[in-house]
Design a protein around this nucleic acid. Structure first.
Lengths: 270, 270
DNA sequence: GAGTGGTCTAGACCACTGT
DNA sequence: CAGTGGTCTAGACCACTCC
């Protein structure tokens, strides 16, 4: 006797379609049948079909585009970001000469892509610190900050791998006017070398990691479907005088990013 | 002239309700009006009301219970888990005598709660390694593992703060039969002391952090609504002979957990 | 203009919870 | 039992895209 399937029918449909996608029957980039077609072929109402498709979107398997159709997503470029090693590597690199610094950046480190595969975007602005930033920097609310918006995307994929807002105290970086101009990005050697030019050496970096739903803006920028969360990283850089010198809010698409941290433990001395 | 509100009406309703919740007009724990009531009072169909409520659930603001009603969620116990410091602290603690080890555990460290506020659950099983685990341990598929399921919850909140599957090579821990019995949990001094009793000293711990939608089981255990992601942490412990001795998959509710990592940087020696 | 996904309606039956 | 949320139907109109 065949056991009856008591799951809701829209879920059954969602799982049938999922099976077709993972098995390759529906190839990546291909258009799915329209909702009306699916309703007819499955014998369900369009409402139920839409419920099924909502599932598939939350699973990150399909992308729906208003007026065009629903498409099977390509499996995306995944990033593994080894932050512990990355930060030390960036610090070491800040002392190299320009030629060596120019050779490679942090993102290539993570993705295995070369500089030529990547498109880089930077945008600078001067903003007063809101309460949150003032608190993060331990400076008065309203203190002038340099806000830098970055994103980097692969040439093969339009959506960026991450979007990052980096904040620096304006007075700190104004000592080197070149740091105020977005035209100088991508800066060889990155932020740690930029800080080096104004006499700052980092002592430690604190990463706070959360998962949360994307804002509408973030969902569009990162090209993720509603229901897919983002990894939100707040990175706080502290220099050797115990002063917070940079705060960065970095947002990654949750479905293709992995953050890796290594903790080295001190030896027992028994 | 008042600008017309072009957003969908279900979203407008969702935001009205959100405003009532954050302003405290709808107090935490209180029942929301039923869907039928909301439909009447808002002049929308029940379908649209349900769309609005789905939004509120994804925002983590309300909980819907089949047959009972929809309730405003209490703001939840948040955890900030300082893993870098925690792991070193656990290592140091493993060398203390039992009385001192018994005093406190790792979870209190994170939450500020005392031992008495916490309920602890442990469940042991022997399982053969699947491909994933075999790969993580660098052992043949099918190797016998000890699988330990843990969860800890606050007495004031039924849902656990995290759910953790910890895997150990069975042969390794079998050297101390006490380690095979879940009755000995919570073990004073935790896993690092358990490993100490079989002669293992950890050299480093690698954490891999992702965000993903919860499995149905996880959603129920952690009491999160569909659409709220979990933070999934794979923690790999490596001993001083470079052998993987523990792999733990730990799942946190994304809407109330923050993982914190500190990277100490080496001084420049210019 | 034809076809797509997004919104919306007015019903219906069901499983589940409380009394 | 009545009331709740979960599923489902058979329609409708809209904004959008592409031809």
């Amino acid at each position: 006797m065949i056991p009856r399937d008591w799951r809701p029918r829209y879920l059954q449909l969602a799982e049938e379609l999922r099976a077709q996608i993972v098995s390759g029957k529906l190839v990546q980039g291909a258009a799915m049948p329209s909702e009306t077609e699916l309703a007819e072929s499955s014998g369900l109402s369009r409402t139920s079909v839409r419920n099924a498709i909502r599932q598939l979107r939350e699973w990150g398997l399909v992308r729906a585009e208003q007026g065009r159709g629903t498409y099977v997503r390509a499996p995306r470029q995944r990033i593994r970001r080894h932050n512990t090693e990355r930060y030390q590597w960036e610090k070491d690199r800040a002392l190299l000469d320009e030629g060596q610094r120019r050779k490679t950046g942090g993102t290539e480190h993570d993705t295995g892509l070369t500089v030529d595969d990547l498109k880089f975007h930077a945008e600078y602005a001067q903003v007063p610190a809101d309460d949150d930033m003032a608190n993060a920097f331990d400076l008065p609310t309203g203190t002038l900050l340099l806000r830098r918006l970055y994103w980097t995307s692969s040439r093969h994929e339009s959506a960026p791998l991450s979007v990052s807002y980096s904040y620096l105290p304006y007075d700190l970086v104004a000592a080197n006017p070149e740091l105020l101009d977005a035209e100088n990005e991508p800066w060889p050697g990155g932020t740690q070398h930029q800080l080096f030019t104004v006499g700052v050496e980092l002592a430690r970096i604190v990463d706070e990691v959360r998962a949360r739903p994307p804002s509408p803006d973030e969902a569009e920028l990162l090209d993720i479907e509603p229901g897919v969360s983002v990894l939100a990283l707040r990175k706080t850089s502290i220099d050797i005088t115990d002063r917070v010198v940079e705060v960065a809010d970095i947002v990654f698409p949750g479905d293709r990013t992995e953050l890796v941290y290594t903790t080295d433990l001190k030896r027992w001395t028994t």
